[in-house]
Computed example of a mutant assay.
Amino acid sequence: MRNPVMNNTKWDELRLAMYALDPTPAWSTLSTNGYQSSRDTEWFHHFRDGGYADIVHVDIFATDEAMRQRVGDALRSIHVPGEETAEGFRVFGYAANGKFVDYL
């Protein structure tokens, strides 16, 4: 069983924070049906296309340390559930029952 940890308002905050970065980082989503999207860098329209209800998590890719710093600062400023990964960051839309989710 999955429990939502994001809502449409927080997803929009994430989308706009990433859209404001230059250059925008690439992202990829995992959907509740198991579909893993291809990497994309268009946050304004593509990210919200189809809504947010089925996003299990979004991976945000940092190509270098400067981008990792900018993305991390932006995520911390909007306080979203997630974690730092080897490739960048993962923001959770859902958490499994009994799983602790930290916030950036």
Rank of each mutant, 00 (worst) to 15 (best):
M1V: 08
F47I: 03
H79L: 08
G98E: 11
F61W: 09
G88S: 10
D102K: 10
G82M: 04
Y52L: 07
D49R: 14
M18V: 07
Y35H: 15
A20V: 00
E65G: 15
S28R: 14
N7P: 03
P25I: 04
R76M: 08
A86Y: 01
L14T: 02
G72S: 05
A17E: 05
T85C: 08
R39M: 09
L104D: 01
E13D: 14
A95R: 14
R39H: 09
W11T: 05
A66Y: 03
S38R: 12
H46P: 00
H79W: 01
Y35M: 10
V91P: 02
S38F: 03
D12P: 00
R2V: 09
V71R: 02
L16H: 10
A74G: 06
M1H: 12
E83C: 06
I78M: 08
G93I: 03
V91T: 09
V56H: 08
V71Q: 07
D59V: 05
V71A: 07
P4F: 05
T63R: 13
R48M: 11
D59K: 06
S31H: 15
D12V: 09
Y103S: 12
S37Q: 08
N33E: 14
R48N: 12
R76A: 10
A26H: 06
A86D: 15
W27L: 05
D64R: 04
G93P: 02
D59I: 05
D40T: 10
D59A: 06
S37F: 06
S37V: 04
L16C: 08
L14W: 06
P81W: 06
D64N: 15
